[in-house]
Design a protein around this nucleic acid. Structure first.
Lengths: 139, 139
DNA sequence: ATTATTGATACAAGGACTTGCAGTTGCATA
DNA sequence: TATGCAACTGCAAGTCCTTGTATCAATAAT
């Protein structure tokens, strides 16, 4: 179960329980090469323990999201994907023509966040966004 | 059917047909007080002509979105809402604690759009976004 | 005018989540 | 080590939206 120790202890701190399901789900996300979908997580988990339910996966993802351990991104293909915060924060540029996806620095939203705080007193929580548009080649 | 004339003629120009369903759906969106959901559109349309199907509503919304006549926003409450571009472009700040929604100027994203174009050659199409975070009171 | 062709629609089935509920389990405490 | 209970899970049913298919209507070609 690798080095997910910190996250697990954070769960305990906040009064949440550590269950085999949660450990396996967390493991799947942390070991994933790329952004992973709920269905893919379930498939991986079921290799170890077949009777885990998809709703448990969704509920755990919701929890991990709330605790800021995982981010959720909609790439516009009809299913949402998840990513461990430990593997780095970033956003995505999705080309609406060729479908290409390019990663982009998180800092790009800093000016927007500052303006929102100044003008609206709003503390924006912008994490792992997919921005749609047209890439260099396609526009 | 009010002053939807431009939009209807734009449909014709692009080789799309003007059907009663499309007119009624467009009408529902334009006359809506606020951002309206697909289900609400269907209810309104069915007052006039009961046999219209929800899938026609979704397909029409998809078309109007593509033509840039309507924007789609996810306020995070499990259903997406639509808004006529004629009634003004703007974004929303959604408070994750109190649920309050504040409109925000479109121009706030201009610096981001410029940076994306310079650094990535990406022409971002940022329309009608909902940004989550905490409002003045709640943070 | 008659026949293709294309486009739009209703209906039904499917996919991605979400929710209610009854039963199970982790874990604090005795 | 047992026990109490809130937290968690699996299951089934439900919601919102999408897609496949056959049918129907409008325009274009013959």
């Amino acid at each position: 179960m690798a080095k997910s120790g910190e996250i697990l202890s954070k769960l305990t701190e906040q009064g949440y329980r550590i269950t085999p399901q949660r450990m396996m789900i967390l493991d799947a996300i942390e070991n994933a090469e790329d952004h992973i979908s709920a269905e893919e997580i379930l498939t991986l988990v079921c290799l170890q323990y077949p009777n885990v339910n998809i709703s448990t996966v969704y509920r755990t993802l919701e929890l991990l999201k709330q605790l800021g351990m995982v981010t959720e991104t909609d790439f516009g293909d009809g299913r949402v994907r998840y990513h461990s915060i430990k593997k780095g924060r970033h956003h995505h540029l999705v080309c609406q023509k060729c479908g290409g996806i390019v990663d982009m620095e998180e800092s790009i939203f800093n000016p927007v966040k500052e303006t929102l705080l100044e003008q609206y007193g709003f503390d924006a929580d912008i994490h792992h966004m997919a921005i749609f548009g047209y890439c260099k080649k396609c526009r």
